[in-house]
Design a protein around this nucleic acid. Structure first.
Lengths: 139, 139
DNA sequence: TTTCCTGCAAAAGCTTTGCAAGTAC
DNA sequence: GTACTTGCAAAGCTTTTGCAGGAAA
């Protein structure tokens, strides 16, 4: 599907730079940092500035086309996969998707009634649940 | 219980500064940042440097007396409550504990068999599962 | 006595911002 | 034409580090 159309649907102005950053993010498996994307896209597009990558990522997040992943410590990582899915974090600071079936199994097992109770007691709306499996080294 | 003894049990050298930082962190409900702790403890202990707060927090984390909380964006937050518990994050970047019973209900509902499957397929050891409920504004 | 901790100041890393010029709509 | 985006450079904020002196074990 045309990226231009995706942007338009999300109320985001199209530019060639944004398209490239978004395409690279969507194609990546590794939940890259802004710097990694700058490096990656910059190989084809020499003039791309790091500031534009940051601005683009913020625009993507604001318009619901990407997520910020919270990792303890290091630079921020981004993910263009907006479907509900869980992550695994490794001791060296890496982060990866859990295989889709396991992701689903975990997320489905969380009882909706408990989330409704959270809403009732805290007076908030639950937007989603983030699940991260912390992996230690070896077995 | 004596903080000195807690440190010793965890193989962490005791100093008055560390005791104060740890006590303040343990007493806090708000998952403070390093800067917030520096400000808080610094009211009683004027000479405390921010570098020492950072060093202390790192030592606490390394010795299993505190956790680093990953929040998207802002400065790092810390938590001295090492029991398995879930958090709620608010749209303004805040983070709070879920009420204990709801925490338990969510964490217990995650099927151990699925985690065993994660270990088998990914060849890792599962150290824990982080759960964060994302709260939106109002209801 | 040995090893580690501390404050200070400087450095390093990540992210945001101001501005003038350029581009999407 | 208007409003938003861009690159550049500078600033801002968070975190780490080197070092000389001091404190814990």
């Amino acid at each position: 599907m045309d990226i231009r159309a995706v942007f338009r649907e999300h109320g985001l102005r199209w530019t060639l730079r944004r398209e490239r950053v978004y395409a690279a993010l969507a194609a990546s498996e590794s939940h890259p940092t802004a710097d990694a994307l700058h490096e990656l896209v910059g190989r084809q597009d020499r003039g791309l500035s790091l500031a534009t990558v940051y601005n683009t990522l913020e625009a993507l997040v604001d318009h619901g086309l990407a997520r910020r992943l919270s990792v303890g410590g290091g630079p921020q990582r981004f993910d263009a996969d907006m479907s509900e899915h869980a992550h695994v974090t490794t001791p060296d600071g890496g982060i990866a998707d859990l295989p889709p079936d396991l992701s689903r199994a975990i997320l489905r097992s969380i009882d909706g009634a408990v989330l409704a109770e959270v809403e009732r007691r805290l007076g908030v709306r639950v937007r989603g649940v983030r699940v991260e499996v912390e992996a230690g080294r070896g077995m």
